[in-house]
Design a protein around this nucleic acid. Structure first.
Length: 576
RNA sequence: GCGCCCGUAGCUCAGCUGGAUAGAGCGUCGGCCUCCGAAGCCGAAGGUCAGAGGUUCGAAUCCUCUCGGGCGUGCCA
């Protein structure tokens, strides 16, 4: 069954051709979209551009289109309203097309088969010499969602954790451990212990600048490639940290296809540097090796080697870009990294461009805003981790889960598996909150808002799923087959159906713009529509044919909400 | 100083790349559980889209400037 939108497009193009317009010229000008107000119709056509092409006034052309298109089995009506034409689909066709596609798990509601795109997504990438705190969460959950969205659309996805396991921060941690480290203490609570070491080092380095010099020496020794004390210490701390990070990752349901941190590129940086040299873009400046990008409007040069001979973040990212190009042949490489690092990625892209590397076109920084906390006087400011008051992600998740536990005790005390459900719902509330708004916006970390599970929240959408699952359980009969359904009986579900129909476009846009919040918004909208519908339309008590049709609708809604939440990396419990 | 980002209801945000009367949630006020899950639903109040110019049939959306706030700005990542 062809989908409704393309049927409408085809019919429109035929009509426009009859009206004397060139089909190829008209096609890109076909502005179809949801009307401002869904009471106007299901889909609206703005006739502005087409009118220009036809040399007519928009309202005149709109009138001609509306008059000429005529109803068929799919299109129920077409009405001109000024420069717009509002279309309405036949209710039975709308219900049948949308719901059977969802039931069959067909694209766009289900995963598409390969679309040929290869997408590398560099996300999370924490500096593992520091604890996993609230600030690390954004890249992790945004990147995780983007991986799922692109996979849903049929892309080959390489989710990459570009760990910060090299460079000065790690050298500082090593230095701290060499001075004060204790393995027994470390094993008691690795993340907390390393955070304490980190704090101790920062404090000590303020009074004693020699400490940073010592760290730099250790880094030099590490980068020498020799099997020395530094290397063994690095290996030890890396293993311990990485293991400690598994906790938050598994709670968030995040996995990676490649855990290739900065250290992975240790032996690939020389080749990368030679490539830069061969391209003739490397210059010496104050003892360092740099690439100037002034001609691209970037004033700060990209530093690739320090005057002490060691490498930098840029050097590793450059080597990583070459490696990814050769290994994966990506169409896009998304770097899910905070907006404060925009210059870094502009420089990376700039260097690749200056070298004439085509991978420059694939490089795409996906920036996001900061996490802010509320001050005493009600203002918002950046979370200060250096002051030693870092909020660990685990603590935030625990707090949320505890709140959910209370809500369950109050509203659903007989629930089985309370603990597992509390974990699912509590974690998802935090994740959902992070994915709710445009990623470039700063996240205002507000306990009250985050632990309020009413309105536009993760638990709200999950609650809709649980409610639908409950109806399906109580039906005590399997969901009827599609050919047993009289879809005309679902005319009253038009708002639910039209929202469902928007799903594909939402996922598409989320992928193009690297913006999971588009999917988040859609799940909220669909949950809202189905909640409203259920209020007015009882399922189980309806007469058999109506009951069957509504059961089919309920099942599809539950599936699509589950899919939508899945794209966000959020589980949909059957009960909560 | 320079570069980039943000500014929409009391608060937190949508607004689908220029189209119809600017929409949600929270909070406030008022309704709805003898009825499939009230973590829900329905309604009310609440906006000079920071401000000023410009572009055009049409601007919250594009351009310029101003004002607020934030981030960044050579050997950290």
């Amino acid at each position: 069954m062809t989908d409704l939108q393309s049927h409408l497009r085809d019919r429109l193009l035929t009509v426009l051709t009859d009206l004397g317009l060139d089909r190829a010229a008209a096609e890109p000008l076909l502005q179809l979209g949801p009307p401002k107000n869904r009471d106007h119709g299901d889909v609206a056509l703005g006739a502005f551009q087409l009118a220009k092409l036809a040399g007519k006034a928009p309202p005149a052309l709109a009138g001609e289109i509306a008059g000429k298109i005529g109803a068929d089995g799919v299109i129920a009506s077409a009405e001109a309203a000024g420069p717009f034409v509002n279309f309405r689909f036949a209710r039975a066709a709308l219900a049948k097309q949308v719901l059977t596609a969802i039931a069959a798990n067909e694209a766009p509601y289900g995963p598409a088969s390969g679309n040929g795109q290869v997408v590398c997504i560099d996300f999370s990438s924490p500096n593992i010499a520091k604890p996993f705190h609230i600030g690390h969460m954004r890249s992790t959950v945004i990147g995780n969602s983007l991986c799922r969205i692109h996979r849903h659309l049929g892309a080959t996805v390489h989710g990459i954790n570009h760990l910060g396991d090299w460079g000065m921060p790690f050298a500082k941690m090593m230095t701290a451990y060499m001075h004060w480290g204790d393995e027994t203490e470390l094993h008691k609570s690795p993340m907390r212990y390393m955070f304490d070491l980190y704090k101790r080092y920062s404090q000590a380095a303020k009074d004693d600048p020699a400490l940073d010099a010592e760290a730099a020496k250790h880094f030099q020794a590490l980068e020498s490639g020799e099997d020395n004390a530094e290397r063994r210490m690095w290996q030890f701390l890396r293993d311990e940290s990485l293991q400690a990070f598994q906790g938050p990752y598994s709670r968030l349901g995040v996995t990676f296809d490649h855990i290739t941190g900065e250290s992975f590129f240790e032996d690939k940086m020389e080749a990368a540097m030679q490539r830069v040299t061969a391209a003739g873009v490397l210059e010496e400046s104050d003892g360092a090796e740099v690439v100037w990008l002034k001609e691209q409007g970037i004033k700060q040069p990209c530093l690739l080697r320090k005057s002490d001979g060691t490498t930098l973040y840029h050097t590793r990212d450059l080597a990583a870009a070459f490696y990814r190009e050769e290994t994966f042949h990506p169409d896009r490489i998304l770097y899910v990294v905070g907006a404060e690092q925009k210059l870094h990625f502009d420089q990376l892209e700039g260097v690749l461009k200056k070298m004439g590397e085509k991978v420059a076109d694939a490089v795409e920084h996906v920036p996001f805003g900061l996490v802010l906390s509320k001050t005493e006087d009600g203002k918002w400011e950046k979370f200060a981790s250096r002051a030693g008051n870092a909020v660990f992600l685990d603590e935030i998740l625990d707090e949320s889960v505890a709140k959910v536990r209370n809500v369950i005790a109050e509203k659903n005390p007989d629930l089985e598996d309370k603990e597992a459900v509390a974990e699912q719902v509590g974690v998802s509330a935090i994740v959902f909150n992070d994915l709710k708004n445009s990623r470039i916006k700063d996240v205002k970390f507000d306990w009250d808002a985050m632990l309020n599970f009413e309105g536009e929240t993760g638990p709200y959408v999950q609650y809709a799923c649980a409610r639908l699952a409950s109806i399906l359980r109580k039906a005590e009969t399997p969901v009827p087959a599609p050919d047993a359904i009289d879809f005309a009986l679902l005319a009253d579900a038009e708002r639910v159906l039209l929202t469902m129909m928007d799903f594909g476009a939402a996922v598409q846009r989320a992928a193009e713009q690297s913006e999971p919040s588009v999917v988040t918004s859609h799940t909220i909208a669909l949950a809202g529509e189905i909640h409203s519908y259920l209020r007015e339309h009882h399922v189980l008590g309806a007469e058999p044919a109506v009951r069957d049709a509504r059961l089919f609708l309920v099942d599809a809604a539950r599936r699509l909400l589950t899919t939508g939440l899945g794209l966000l990396g959020i589980a949909a419990p059957e009960r909560m």
